[in-house]
Structure formats: structure tokens, C-alpha cells
């Protein structure tokens, strides 16, 4: 229990000092044979249901998974559904759809002892199929000589698609045996997208907010469980 507790504390410590901690280069000279666990790790993004709970204009779910291929390389994927209403100064619209991201991570963190944590960088290819609905807009004109009025066209733009690339950096900490807490940030750049006519893809599930030069970024906070399949010597 004590050992478990200290492992937990070390893991939490790692979370806070994650980005300065990667200079650690000591290797342990231990007579005990240490083994790395390989397997399928499955989890969910806990931030999206939490946001849905507090904001009824947003609904989302993301399932994450990765598979360890070599000592430091993991194949990774994210699958999700996202729906949100966005209100801007002159427009109000809804975006909804699902997305998939596939790619891999490289672990840059050197574990010691029985620890199994990661600080990683990764790349993803993302694809989303979604729809947007223009709920309302107020024609934008200078001055207040005429009163502003709002039009409710409820215009649907269906069958939209987007392809993008992502760079991901993140960390995963084994908080309990085989149970991992993770967080990551990803920077996105659009490759291609199908734009609606006389409107624009402003919010894409998986890509999230589309900035002016077709870039975006997002965060996730995951809790995941490793299903160990085999072990290899360190």
C-alpha cells in the first residue's frame, strides 16, 4: 500500500513538473529484471462529458485508444462525436458530427523502476463528417440609423467533410496499476475541407474552432485502462 501510495505521489509530482523533468538521465543498475507491459489501452476524454454537464449547448464524447508497438512508439487513435451551438455577435449556428483521428506517439520520457509514464509527441491524421445549421443572423451594417433585425433561416448544410493534420504533445501517468491519467494538447492544420455555400466551416467536430488561417487547437483529459497482452524485458 505504501509503495502504491508513493508511486501515486511520484506520478502526481510528475504531472506538475512534467516539462522540466525530462532531463533525468540516470539509469538504474538493478539486479531485478524489469519488464515493460504491452497491450491495448482504452479510455475516454473526461473533459467533454464534464463540459456537457455544465453547458447544455455542448454535447461530446471521445474514446481514445493506443497500442504499444515498440519500446517508445505507440499507435494511437481517437473517435468522437461532438455537437455545439455557437453564438457570435451577428450569427448563431450549430455544428454536429463525428470524427476519427489516427496516428502515433513517441514517448520521450525515460522511466525508471517499475514506472510506466509517458511524455510524448505524436502526429495524427484527422477526418470529420459533419453538418452545420445556420440558426439565425443579423445583417451587419454600420451605424444605428436603421434598427438591427434578426433573420431565422434555419439553413442546414449537410454532408460536409474536413481532413486535417495534427501535432500532439501530452503526458500519461500510471496513477494505479494499469490505470492511466492523461492530458494532451494538439495543434491542427487543415488539409482540405468541403465548405458550405455562402457560409463557412467555423466549428468542426474534432478540429474544434477553425481559426482564420485554417488552424486550430484542442485539449483532452483522459482516463484510460491498459489491457496487458504481453510483457517484454526492459
Amino acid at each position: 500500500m505504501k509503495q502504491n501510495m508513493s508511486r501515486f505521489c511520484i506520478s502526481i509530482l510528475l504531472l506538475t513538473v512534467a516539462f522540466s523533468a525530462n532531463a533525468q538521465e540516470e539509469t538504474t543498475k538493478d539486479s531485478i529484471k524489469l519488464k515493460d507491459k504491452y497491450g491495448l489501452r482504452l479510455g475516454v476524454d473526461i473533459s467533454k462529458p464534464a463540459i456537457s454537464f455544465f453547458n447544455d449547448k455542448i454535447k461530446g464524447l471521445e474514446i481514445v485508444g493506443d497500442f504499444r508497438i515498440t519500446k517508445n512508439i505507440y499507435a494511437a487513435t481517437e473517435l468522437g462525436y461532438y455537437e455545439r451551438d455557437t453564438e457570435e455577435d451577428y450569427i448563431n449556428f450549430n455544428s454536429k458530427g463525428s470524427y476519427i483521428k489516427v496516428g502515433g506517439n513517441i514517448n520521450l520520457y525515460q522511466n525508471w523502476g517499475k514506472m510506466s509514464n509517458e511524455i510524448y509527441v505524436g502526429v495524427r491524421y484527422g477526418f470529420s463528417t459533419f453538418s452545420q445549421t445556420l440558426n439565425s443572423y443579423s445583417p451587419n451594417f454600420d451605424g444605428t440609423y436603421f434598427d438591427e433585425h434578426t433573420i431565422f433561416p434555419n439553413l442546414d448544410f449537410d454532408g460536409l467533410t474536413a481532413h486535417w493534420a495534427e501535432i500532439v504533445i501530452g503526458l500519461k501517468v500510471e496513477a494505479f496499476n494499469n490505470l492511466y491519467l492523461g492530458s494532451s494538447i494538439s495543434l491542427k492544420k487543415m488539409i482540405s475541407q468541403e465548405q458550405p455555400e455562402n457560409f463557412k466551416n467555423l466549428y468542426i467536430p474534432g478540429f474544434e474552432r477553425v481559426y482564420l488561417n485554417d488552424t486550430g487547437f484542442s485539449f483532452n483529459y483522459t482516463i484510460s485502462y491498459l489491457i496487458p497482452i504481453f510483457k517484454k524485458n526492459k
Binding site: 525530462n22 509527441v121 451594417f141 501535432i167 481559426y211 482564420l212
Partner: peptide, 30 residues
């Protein structure tokens, strides 16, 4: 390995500073 994380962090910071919250394009003409 030591340099890649700060570099990515800087790229992300710059990218996240971009703003399109203010309307500067011309709107309905007179």
C-alpha cells in the same frame, strides 16, 4: 529531445494568439 518540447510549445502559443473576434472587414455598403 530536450529542445523539441519547448519548440512545439512556442508554436502552439503563437498559433493560439491569432484573433478573429473583431470585425474589421467592410460590411453592408451605403
Amino acid at each position: 529531445k530536450k529542445h523539441i518540447l519547448p519548440i512545439i510549445a512556442i508554436i502552439l502559443l503563437i498559433a493560439s494568439c491569432e484573433k478573429d473576434d473583431i470585425c474589421i472587414e467592410p460590411v453592408t455598403p451605403q
